[in-house]
């Protein structure tokens, strides 16, 4: 298994923040902030909180803000909040109740210092 890949199974509930340079797959519930290189919220997953990542893929439910260079919303995705992105892919059937502001790539490089991300 990949050393930098974390897998949070269906049965796992995390109340708190996740921070990694690698990849996180959420199939359970996470209530808190996620900082990662790549985040995948699986079809059974639920994330409530903000995400800062390079790539984000949502196949399940999510409520909160996404700050990511590349965002992919699967057909089963259910997203509420805001999606700050540079490129976004939305599959037919995805349910989105969110604003989707576009940002240049430079925005994501300095993300930690941004007031929008800090709040």
């Amino acid at each position: 298994m990949d050393l930098f890949k974390s897998h949070l199974s269906k049965a796992l509930v995390v109340k708190g923040d996740l921070e990694t340079d690698g990849e996180v797959h959420i199939h359970g519930r996470v209530l808190g902030q996620v900082c990662a290189d790549r985040l995948v919220v699986g079809s059974s997953g639920y994330l409530e909180g903000d995400v800062i990542a390079r790539d984000v893929r949502i196949e399940g439910r999510m409520a909160g803000r996404i700050f990511a260079l590349n965002v992919t919303l699967d057909s089963a995705a259910d997203v509420t909040g805001r999606i700050f992105h540079n490129t976004i892919t939305v599959a037919k059937g995805a349910r989105i109740d969110a604003r989707m502001p576009w940002r240049p790539p430079s925005y994501f490089e300095t993300l930690e210092t941004l007031p929008e991300a800090r709040q």
Partner: peptide
């Protein structure tokens, strides 16, 4: 993409600040 069941793995690179609760293996 890994499957949704099976044990949860918190990799070497991951830091979690908060509580973990699971009815499966970690």
């Amino acid at each position: 993409v890994s499957k949704s069941s099976g044990p949860s793995v918190i990799s070497k690179a991951l830091k979690i600040t908060g509580q973990l609760e699971s009815s499966e293996d970690i």
